[in-house]
Amino acid sequence: MAILEVKDLKKTFGKNPVIKGISFDMEEGEILGILGPNGAGKTTTLQMLLGVLTPTSGSVNVFGKELMPNKTEILEKMNFSSTYTDLPWRITVSENLTWTSWLYNIVDRKQRLEKIKSIFRLEKLWHQSFGSLSAGQRTRVNLARSMINFPKILLLDEPTASLDPEVAAYMREFFADQRTKFNTSIILTSHNMAEVEELCDRVIILKDGLIVGADSPANLAKKMEFSHLRLRITKNASELDKLITLRHLAHIQEKNNYTITIKESLLPLFLYEVTKKNINYTEISIDKPTLEDYFLKVARSKSEAL
């Protein structure tokens, strides 16, 4: 059953339509990625899902209820973290998490704070003021704040953008674990394609306020027809040049290193011909298309709604 349903959501700022009618849903326990170039409307969409931005039209239903009339009840079980928001700078991490914990109906408040402190490795930062922390540490505290109520739905806006690789990997592991253990549903926006491929079951690609792609990261990548074949040639390079010309293939050559762009379906035949023409190589690698390739293709193309 869908835990979140968005129908024909639109948002116009003045005369500028930012979200032009998007519809999607999310299952319980699903991790959904929202990708898109800057200005595509990702943060605007997240704000409307949280009720902190009024849509121009359309509907958002969460836990089977309309968001705006049931906002208080719904937000008790939702939370949000963004690299674009802060907490009060002058007060300590401990105080910031304490006051935010009181905004939720938490029975074991003290234990909850201890648990959050340990999960997000905040022991050393606990009594430091929020403003004295580095960008990465602030992001970690913001993420800790978003878990204070152990939400059923968590919205993360570029959650690992300023974290170091080790902490980012730890956080990804933590979010994946939340889904496995507690069936938490997560919506994630990120510019880190590897992160999205690792975490997300499904991805929505937004461009100019429209959904221009929606599928699993693997299926989206498969929509790219071309692979990159890399060869280091040791003999008969001229034969390879002829073959490339004959097949009208795009390629880049740096000395005897060739990177050839070729349709995946033609790869076996092309490699057969390379062997037949006695072209020798010492190294070979095939880069299969990734979500990033698909994203770049979509980002460079003209917007067309699904």
Binding site: T85, D86, R145
Partner: peptide, 18 residues
Amino acid sequence: LEDLWNRNLVNIFVSPVK
């Protein structure tokens, strides 16, 4: 003003606060 300077209004209103 403190809430605006700290961009804290959003933290308050993504919670169940009325």
